[in-house]
Amino acid sequence: MYALTVLLRRWCLLQTNLIVAGVGGQGVITAGFMIAETMSVMGKNVVMSEIHGLAQRGGAVTVEIRVGDVYSPIIPKGRADIILGFEPIETIRAADKANPETFILMNSEKQTPVSLSMEGREYLPDDDISRLLKPFKHVVKINATGLALEAGNTRTINTVMVGAAIATSVLPITPGELKLTLRKRFNKSLYDVNERALNLGINYVKNDIIQNDDGEIKNLHS
């Protein structure tokens, strides 16, 4: 059943909408770029919106990518198919454009916004995060920072997340296609560490999360 849903999504839908959200400095734009360029190379019509300027490190950063029969780079409300959240609060913020069927992949590493710290407050408790994500059926929580460290460089969080995104099969690209982009863009040593990060992200979602055919992902809530 799940495999069928995936195939339907990949080949029949007119458009796929992806949001990559995180905090400035986490490699959000790079992650979006890797996915978008791979889809472009594979002959898809891709539009991607980036916002540069003002927020550099520590501010919220969002990239929206649309593939298929689309013109505007901005995703309409309720139409995100997959959200790659590099940070829990930013994941939930991006979920404003999600619907119950949206795949939400969330890096569990928290970055407390200064606006909270300044008031002497702490990060949202895990229960609140789970409650806020309750409306969504497919939520996968990933320790991308841990996996990036395992790959050999904490800066590859974004590549881990890209791997996780590909493993959901929501995006019309394969791991092999994504690796071609990595190979084109990175020198040998950077490629190796990024390939490891990509595989770790893919395997995490493949082996640890998607185990049955019903498509239900309850990792976060369990």
């Binding site: 520590g58 501010g59 609060i89 939930i92 916004p113 606006s115 909270l116 609140d128 806020l132």
Partner: peptide, 8 residues
Amino acid sequence: SIPQRPPV
């Protein structure tokens, strides 16, 4: 309930 993260 989601705190803002303005540019800093």
